[in-house]
Write a protein that binds this DNA or RNA. Structure first.
Length: 588
RNA sequence: GGGGCUGUAGUUCAGCACGGUUAGAACGCCGGCCUGUCACGCCGGAGGUCGCGGGUUCAAGUCCCGUCAGCCCCGCCA
């Protein structure tokens, strides 16, 4: 390579006037006037206009005729001010241009399968197959640069707080419960398998037993489950764990971390402390344990108001122990829109959606005739509805009511444009139940995981009334998306034994599955707890993107394929034999 | 496993409800011209397995069935 780069393209400005520079980058566009030729040269830093003139540099000018998009160049030239009136305000470097003296073509390029020079939409499948071109588009690297920055800030913050970054194994042991594992066959041990970790949970607890006291890791995790816009089979956690702490210590430090990252990247000043909402209250007011606090439309239970009503649908639901909740939307809806909303809640199991329109002269609805003036007055007091708004009600079992209205709440907020742009509303959800009854398995299962500590004051109910026991777990929710979760762990074996008993995990089973952790707990395990962020989700939300694929360099499709490499792919018979996997599966 | 949206030129799309000449547009690409453009301009040209398979029909891009792929959602994700 003859010409060695001296400057990035995107930083050149009037400070560099008269300087001789050597630039390297890709041809974004060529504007060839036969005489003068303009090349927009792009590198990671940005774009600058290079001018080839027949008089100034005949050789370079001649060669420049042959340039095409995505050719790779080095150009030697002089920075000069653009002629009066020829500035391009759309370019950061638009005040200047580079008068080319020498051109070296470092590589040619095939015509790209999609245009790289403009913001035209390109199908995601094509973008993923040619991800290297997709990323090369102007601004294409932005999400990854942003992600890098968030990662570095997190590291910096945690380093200063005395955390050690420690790696944990990827080839580890399958632990049942939780998501489906990705399995790796063992060559040395026929019939045995490693599993890729769903999270470093057990290792980080053991690091606490090892005396690390403060651990973190930005670490890949693997779960073989179906994909979503915010779920990839391999994703990244910012994982951390601390010794000698309670939940307030962890939550407080994590708030500081968020404040720091948001300030340094987005210039957003987050207010501390973040609201703490109990699980029960979140369900009551928002119908979900991950509420979006950027808008109102809160849910209110109105069962008592309608008790004894002659409206059959409500009465029957109440009789069989169901509930009625409602919300007030600040908008009027047409008959057709109301039908659409009814169909919408139907997707979540609601058998109907009752509505009352609020008019200047009172309520209007087909069902309002069933309600006493006293009931209607109470509705007015609760919702304080302005004329022109609409009350919605769902009557059903609590789980259906909450899910349907929670989804309706989000749906209406989007539809009515009630969500402020660039708004970041955090909250902690606390006081989760320790366990919930699993109908299919016929036993209690852990809401978080089996190592989550119960609250001290609820310990007496562990055996008699387990559903009443709250855990020392906490979830961090941002704009209605769970971005982190953690807990204070059980560090004493007798408590762990009682929880296993409650979860109907036998001693033999516990020994087989988590024996190494249980044994570790017996050697002076300190009280400890921690948290894991869904790092991709956090970055996605901060970057204002709709999918974590946008903030991952090489994401997989919804069917879990990598369109770039073609993974997953067949392997040879020899490879299968080596890991003792006999073919036969083709038969199916 | 289930529901929905999408699939037509290299790209982004129109055409499909009501089947009927040779399937269009823009950008890109190829050739030519052009000394101040910046989505340069002008002239000319090439480019199609209408995702794939089957069916209905005299005739299918268009209707029907199946299938594949991408995306969104439910289930699933302690």
């Amino acid at each position: 390579m003859g010409l060695k780069r001296t400057h990035p393209c995107g930083i050149l400005c009037t400070d560099h006037l008269g300087e001789e520079v050597i630039l390297s980058g890709w041809v974004l566009r060529r504007r060839d006037h036969g005489g003068v030729i303009f090349i927009d040269l792009r590198d990671r830093s940005g774009v600058v206009q290079v001018v080839f003139e027949p008089k100034t540099a005949p050789e370079a000018h001649e060669l420049a005729h042959s340039l095409k998009p995505e050719y790779v160049l080095s150009v030697r030239g002089r920075v000069r001010r653009r002629p009066e009136g020829m500035e391009n305000p759309k370019l950061p470097t638009g005040e200047i241009e580079v008068e080319a003296h020498e051109l070296e073509v470092l590589n040619t390029s095939k015509t790209p399968p999609f245009p790289l020079d403009e913001e035209v939409p390109v199908s995601e499948a094509l973008r993923l197959k040619y991800r290297y071109l997709d990323l090369r588009r102007p601004g294409g690297l932005e999400p990854l640069i942003f992600r890098h920055r968030v990662a570095q800030l997190a590291r910096q913050f945690l380093n200063e707080q005395g955390f050690l970054e420690i790696e944990t194994p990827f080839l580890t042991k399958s632990t049942p419960e939780g998501a489906r594992d990705y399995l790796v066959p063992s060559r040395l041990y026929p019939g045995k398998f490693y599993a890729l970790p769903q999270s470093p949970q057990l290792f980080k607890q053991i690091l606490m037993v090892a005396g690390v006291e403060r651990y973190y890791q930005i670490v890949r995790c693997f779960r073989d489950e179906d994909l979503r816009a915010d779920r990839q089979p391999e994703f990244t956690q910012l994982d951390l764990e601390m010794s000698f702490v309670d939940e307030e210590d962890v939550m407080g430090l994590m708030e500081e971390l968020m404040v720091y990252i948001f300030r340094e990247t987005l210039g957003v000043e987050l207010k501390r402390p973040f609201p703490r909402i109990t699980y029960e209250e979140a369900l009551s007011r928002y119908g979900t344990d991950r509420p979006d606090l950027r808008f109102g439309l809160e849910l209110v239970e109105v069962s008592d108001i309608f008790r004894g009503t002659s409206f059959k649908v409500f009465a029957q639901v109440l009789e069989r122990g169901g509930m009625i909740k409602g919300l007030c939307a600040p908008s009027d809806f047409s008959r057709k829109e109301l039908d659409e909303l009814t169909a919408f809640v139907g997707e979540f199991g609601a058998k109907g959606l009752a509505w009352i329109k609020v008019r200047e002269d009172g309520f209007q609805s087909p069902i309002v005739k069933f309600f006493s003036e006293e009931s209607l007055q109470k509705l007015r007091e609760i919702f304080n509805p302005k004329p022109g708004s609409t009350l919605f009600f769902v009557a059903d079992d609590p789980s259906v009511v909450n899910e349907a209205l929670s989804e309706l709440r989000k749906h209406l907020a989007e539809r009515l444009d009630l969500i402020p742009e660039k708004d970041f509303k955090f909250c902690w959800i606390v006081d989760f139940p320790l366990v919930e009854w699993d109908e299919d398995e016929g036993r209690y299962v852990a809401v978080h995981h089996p190592f989550t500590s119960p609250k001290e004051e609820d310990m007496p109910f562990l055996e008699e009334n387990p559903e009443r026991v709250r855990s020392r777990a906490y979830d961090l929710v941002l704009n209605g998306i769970e971005i982190g979760g953690g807990s204070i762990r059980i560090h004493r074996k007798e408590v762990q034994d009682r929880v296993f008993k409650l979860l109907k995990i036998s001693e033999e089973e516990a020994q087989e599955k988590f024996g190494f952790l249980l044994e570790a707990l017996e050697y002076g395990a300190p009280p400890h707890g921690g948290l894991a962020f869904g790092f991709d989700r956090l970055v996605m939300l901060m970057a204002g993107r709709n999918s974590i694929r946008e903030v991952i360099a090489f994401p997989k499709t919804q069917r879990a394929q990598c369109l770039l490499t073609g993974a997953p792919a067949p392997v040879t018979m020899e490879q299968l034999m080596e890991v003792h996997l006999l073919p036969g599966w083709e038969e199916e």
